[in-house]
Structure formats: C-alpha cells, structure tokens
Design a protein around this nucleic acid. Structure first.
Lengths: 179, 179
DNA sequence: CTTGGCATGTAACCCGTTACATGATTTG
DNA sequence: CAAATCATGTAACGGGTTACATGCCAAG
C-alpha cells in the first residue's frame, strides 16, 4: 500500500468513480497517469478495499465503477492516524533561478514572465474550482464544518489559492529586481 | 541528461564541490540521495561537462572535488533557455485533509498542529539561511543584482519564506475551523 | 478528416529510495 | 561505547512516465 493507493481510497470515500475519473481528480493532490492507477485499482480490489460494477455504455466504452468497501474505509481511517510524510516539491524553475546570473536580464525577465503567466492561469483555475464548490454547497462556504463532504475541497482550494498568491507576489517583487 | 544532472551543473557553476557536498546542497531544490548523485557525476565527467581532482585527506576519507568545464557551462546556459517543466508537489497531508471528515475534530486538530510545527521549523531554517547569506554578502541584500553570485540564493530564500508564511497563515485559519 | 475525450489495459524504461559495503574521526 | 559526520560507491527494488494497443463518438 503506497500513498497513491490511499489517495484513491480517499477519493472513493466521497463518491464512487471509474479509474478514468480517479485519474482526473487526483491530479491536484498526487499527479499520476492512468497506467499507474489501473493496476493499483486491481490490487485494491483483490485486497477487498474496493469493489466495482461493470457499466456497459453504447456511445462510450464500457466502464468499471469502483466503490469503497467497509474494510477499505477502515484502512483509510487507520492511515490518517499514521505519521505523515513531509511534502516533496521538485521545481526545475527554482534550479534555473539559482544560476540565473548566467544569462542576461532580458532572457531572465522572459522566463519570469512565462512563470508568472503559469501562476495566473493556476489562480484562475482555483477560482473556478471555488465557484464550483460554492454552487454545490447548500450553506455559505465559511459555515462548512469538518464533517461536510465539501469541507476538504473548500479548505484545500483555499490553501492552493494562498500559495499561488504568494508565488505571484514573489514574481512582482522579482520583476522589480530585473529592471 | 535529466533535470537532476542540470541541477548539479547549476551548483557547480558557483563553486567546485564534492559529490557529498552537492548531495547536501541540492536538497532544497531537488531532493536526491548520494546513491543517485555519484553515478550521475561519473556520467557528467564522461561527457566532459565536469572534471575532478583527487584530494587525499588524512583525518577524513579522500574526496573528489568536481568543477564545471567550459562545455558544461555551455550546456547549462542552453538548458536555461529551454522550456521549463511545471513544478510537481506531492503532499500526503493534502490527501488526508481531503477526507479529514472521517476522523473526529480532536484527531484532525492534532494533525494540523503537527504540520504547523513542521512549517514553523522550516521558517526558522529559512531565517538562518537568510542570515548566512547576509553575512556572506558585502552589499545589503536588497541591492544585490542578477549577476551577483548570491542573487540566486537570496531570491530563492525569499520565495521559500513567502510560501511557508502562506502555509502558516492557512494553518491559523484552519485552527479556527476545527474549534 | 483529424484531433480530443472517454475508457481500459500492458510493457519498457527511467527516476528515486532503501539497503549493502567500507572505514576513520568526533561527539554525546 | 554508540551514534553521527565525512566520503565514496553498487545493487535491488518500487514509483512514475512514455509508449503500445484498441475503438467509438463528437467537434472543428
């Protein structure tokens, strides 16, 4: 059982989903390709942590809809109580910034603006996710409490938004340094 | 040539270093173990991007001090101009927060405080790095410009500090949600 | 008429971690 | 006396990406 496996159980604790959907929705938390997810789902099924139903479709390919079992839920809750690994970030851009003095100001500024655009797009995406959660929720988001199914979504979007705002602030600050 | 290889060249563009030192100093940018670095250095040497001198030591084991060659510098500068991969973060804590509703408020608060402590320690570390750079610099840090060898260090510590402050702000906000 | 989305799976490969191996000195 | 630091390396394993494979439908 690796972290990605628990990640899949985490998503399934809220909704039954196909492998394809799991692949799409786990990206913000733990990037993974379908080629990694399908074999793990087969494993989880053999361990009895998930089960699936075949759903034939006429217009699209048939699919397998996975759900969390009682023993899967138990495993998930135990994992939450276990010590948590430190986050790992790998950012090629940071390596380039470290030795940015090797290129001239113009090229450095070009790189910075590209990265700033990337952050702007991310911020927009988080804004859309926020609106989506707002629409799904009956209560105003500030009133959501821990056991609301949307609580996790809400607080993680807030976390991502704060992070991207810090990144954009840094970009602004950097621009003044490269003038 | 993978990203880590360019990372090693990036560090060597500032100082000649041993594999061991490279392993220590690349951690904030691109976490890697010595077992990954030593074979890459051997490759880089065969490609002519780095060279080394044997330095016998009496008290400690002998070492190989690596330096960047002219062709290594060229490769490094070309890499900087190439498109940059998006950053990748994997955070087990985020997965747990997503389904935090599966445990009670007390356990959730315990997890949050643990993570907050982790961030506090990180912030202290960045503070120390900042002081270290300040001591090494002849000029006040705000006056460093792009071609100063300390510029990269300075702006990356600033970036990391802004990030950890955003994380701590989020923790404070979360604590009020779990009361 | 080609590209992208839906939907599943396998195989080969590269990247990264853990473990094995050695050995002296310093610190607790 | 045990653990940590310096210092280098290899081997085995698990995690993650790219590529191979299939096939239908919708949109540009």
């Amino acid at each position: 059982m690796n972290t990605l496996s628990y990640g899949l159980l985490s998503l399934l604790s809220k909704d039954s989903r196909t492998g394809y959907e799991l692949m799409q929705h786990i990206q913000p938390f733990w990037p993974a390709k379908h080629s990694q997810i399908y074999p793990l789902l087969a494993q989880l099924e053999q361990m009895g942590y998930v089960e699936f139903v075949h759903v034939p479709q006429s217009d699209k390919p048939d699919k397998k809809v996975y759900s969390l079992t009682a023993s899967g839920l138990k495993a998930l809750q135990e994992w939450i109580g276990l010590p948590t690994d430190a986050p790992v970030t790998r950012d090629e851009f940071a390596l380039k910034v470290y030795c940015i003095g090797l290129v001239d100001k113009d090229e450095a500024m070009k790189m910075l603006l590209e990265r700033e655009n990337y952050y702007i797009q991310k911020k927009e995406q988080y804004g859309e996710s926020f609106e989506k959660v707002k629409r799904l929720s009956k209560k105003p988001l500030e009133e959501l409490e821990i056991h609301d199914p949307l609580f996790g979504n809400y607080v993680l979007i807030r976390k991502a938004t704060l992070k991207v705002e810090a990144d954009l602030f840094w970009c602004e600050w950097m621009k003044s340094k490269l003038k």
